[in-house]
Amino acid sequence: MSLATEFKAFIQRGNALDLAVGVVIGAAFGKIVTSLVDNIIMPPIGLLIGGVDFSAWKWILKAAGADGKGEVAIGIGVFVNTIIQFLIIAAAIFLVVKVINSVTKKPEPAPAAPPEPTPTEKLLTEIRDALKK
C-alpha cells in the first residue's frame, strides 16, 4: 500500500478530523485556563500573602542598564502560574476521561455455556438413569 493511499484512508476514517477538533478545543481551553489562573485565582492568593503580583515575581540575575534594557531574570511567578494552569488542565482532562469511560462501559460478556460432559460423565448419567427405573 502506498503512502498516499494510507494517508487517504487515514483521513477518511475521521482520525485527522477528530485530532484537529481536539487541538482547536484544547487551545481554546488553554486560553480559558490561563485567564482563570492569571485574572481570578492568583490575584486573591497574592493579596493573601502580602500583595505579591505573581506575574511580576522574578529573581533578577542581572539588573537592567540605564536604558532599562538588558535585565536577566528568572520568572518564578510566571512559572508558578504555568504549574497551576497545568494542574487545572490535567484535572479537567482526568474528569473528562473518567466520565467517558463510565459512559462507554463495555457490556459484561455473556456467561459461557456449560462444557459438554465427558464420556465418563455420560456413562455415569446413563447408569444413574437406568438405576432410577
Score class of each variant (00 low, 15 high):
T5G: 12
A20G: 12
F7K: 08
G50I: 02
V37E: 00
V23F: 11
T104P: 01
A113K: 09
I11V: 15
V24P: 11
P114L: 04
D18I: 14
L95M: 13
V37G: 00
K98W: 10
I25E: 05
A110D: 14
G46F: 00
I49D: 06
P109R: 03
L61E: 03
N101Q: 08
K69W: 08
K133P: 05
P111D: 04
K62T: 08
P114M: 00
L131I: 12
I74R: 02
L123T: 09
N39G: 09
F86D: 12
V33M: 00
V24G: 09
K133G: 11
M42Q: 01
T34G: 12
E71Y: 05
N81Y: 03
V80I: 15
A20H: 06
P119V: 02
G70L: 03
A4I: 07
F29Y: 14
I83R: 08
G65E: 01
L95P: 00
T82D: 12
F29L: 12
V78W: 06
F94K: 15
R13Q: 15
T125C: 06
L95N: 09
G30K: 03
A63W: 04
D67T: 12
K132Y: 07
E108G: 08
A4N: 13
I100H: 10
S55P: 07
A4G: 13
T34W: 15
A64I: 00
F54W: 00
L95G: 13
I76C: 07
K31Q: 15
A63V: 05
T5N: 13
I49H: 01
I25C: 14
A90N: 10
S102A: 13
T5P: 08
G46Y: 04
A28K: 12
E71M: 05
I127K: 09
P117V: 05
T34H: 12
E126I: 11
A20D: 06
S102C: 02
A63S: 13
I100F: 14
A66K: 08
F86M: 13
K31Y: 13
A73G: 03
A91K: 04
E126G: 05
W57M: 15
S2V: 00
Q12D: 15
D53Y: 09
G68Q: 01
D53C: 06
F94T: 10
A20I: 10
G70H: 05
D53K: 14
D53R: 13
A28D: 07
F79Y: 09
L3W: 14
L3I: 07
E71K: 05
V103S: 07
E126Y: 11
T118L: 01
A113Y: 02
N39H: 11
L87V: 06
V97W: 06
V97D: 09
D38A: 10
A16D: 06
L123D: 10
A91S: 06
L36N: 01
L48C: 03
L124M: 10
W59R: 02
F10C: 00
K8R: 15
K106I: 11
V21M: 14
N15T: 10
M1H: 14
E116K: 15
A113G: 03
I25S: 10
P43K: 01
P117H: 00
G51V: 01
L87I: 04
I41Q: 03
I93F: 06
G75Y: 07
P114W: 00
N101D: 12
M42T: 02
V96I: 15
K8H: 13
A110R: 08
T120I: 09
G77W: 02
S55M: 11
A112K: 15
L48S: 15
T104H: 11
K98E: 07
A90H: 04
